[in-house]
């Protein structure tokens, strides 16, 4: 009895101190309050809009007069053969981008780490960041020119007699994923290498010295010191990126695709755009969006869990 009472006063007291503290900290509350409202309006209201997927939404009627259809939209989604094509494309494109992107970024970081002329290193790095900062609209224009039938890549291939007539790189469905993969590398390599280079700066120089005294060659030092030191970073970034597997990069794919390759280019966002805004099947498109989000969340949490199990740094 007495114990219960003391618990009660404790909760009251805790509540009291919460509001007392809130009042005491009113300057901070006033400074942050607009941004609480902000995030709710601009980020959480759209999530509330997920109810659309359980209705047969028509904009002319108010949100409360809509016909409720339960999971009908999801059933239609899973029955649609295009949906599986979309799922395949999204995952394949993400996986190709992830693999190629990581491989080349690590390679570049290892190579930059071997440059002794610091001025040359700095200039190369500065240049390598440039593609990261430009819009995909610009990048898509450049990629299109490079890969055009009269573009430089075809010219080089023809001059080397590797092909006898120009390849329409952007028109071959089977090539599309690789066009996306390599244009991703082109745009990201310099930027992505930053993280690995940062990880390399924390390697103890004594290790290299000791290895040199033991007669290890430069390649051996890379293999036995630098690469193992990068392993935690690689694992963390790999896991982080697996959480992004449902996100194939809308702008890039949208801007580089065309009618000829659509069966390999249709990813979730393009599907939502086509069905939602163009065909006005709002509820159906929302259902697709929800599917993507939910799978993403599951992936992120699994990734976080795996990272924790591997005794690595947690993601959040």
């Amino acid at each position: 009895m007495k114990k219960e009472l003391s618990v009660d006063t404790a909760t009251i007291k805790k509540k009291d101190t919460f509001f007392a503290k809130l009042w005491e900290q009113r300057a901070w509350v006033m400074m942050s309050f607009p941004f609480i409202v902000y995030v709710i309006i601009f980020r959480y209201l759209p999530i509330g809009g997920w109810v659309l997927a359980f209705q047969n939404y028509w904009p002319a009627k108010s949100l409360f007069d809509q016909t409720w259809v339960g999971l009908e939209n999801f059933r239609m989604l899973f029955d649609d053969p295009v949906f599986f094509q979309v799922l395949r494309n999204t995952i394949a494109i993400s996986a190709i981008k992830l693999t190629l992107g990581m491989f080349f970024a690590i390679l570049l970081a290892l190579i930059l780490n071997e440059v002794r002329n610091l001025r040359f290193k700095k200039i190369t790095q500065t240049i390598s960041y440039l593609p990261y900062f430009i819009s995909w609209v610009v990048a898509a224009n450049l990629v299109r020119d490079l890969l055009a039938t009269d573009g430089i890549i075809n010219e080089i291939l023809m001059a080397l007699n590797i092909v006898d007539k120009p390849i329409m790189f952007l028109g071959v469905p089977k090539l599309f994923w690789w066009v996306i993969g390599f244009s991703h590398v082109w745009k990201q390599i310099g930027w992505d290498a930053i993280v690995y280079l940062a990880a390399m700066t924390s390697i103890n120089p004594n290790l290299y010295e000791a290895a040199m005294i033991d007669g290890a060659s430069r390649l051996q030092r890379i293999r036995h010191i630098t690469l193992p030191a990068l392993r935690p970073t690689i694992v963390i970034l790999l896991i982080l990126n697996i959480g992004q597997l449902m996100n194939a990069g809308f702008e890039q794919v949208y801007l580089l695709q065309n009618g000829r390759v659509i069966e390999y280019a249709r990813i979730f966002e393009i599907f939502e755009l086509d069905f939602g805004l163009k065909m006005m099947r709002y509820s159906f498109a929302t259902a697709a969006g929800i599917f993507r989000s939910v799978v993403s969340i599951i992936l992120v949490f699994s990734a976080n869990y795996i990272a924790k199990r591997l005794d690595q740094e947690r993601l959040f």
Partner: peptide, 29 residues
């Protein structure tokens, strides 16, 4: 560190890194 809403606001924002409403709901909002 002593701000009582610190954890609440941080969580509110970190969630937005991983979840978003998607194209159509955002459009209507």
């Amino acid at each position: 560190r002593e701000f009582v809403l610190r954890k609440f606001i941080s969580t509110l924002y970190v969630i937005t890194l991983y979840v978003n409403g998607g194209l159509i709901p955002t459009y209507f909002v």
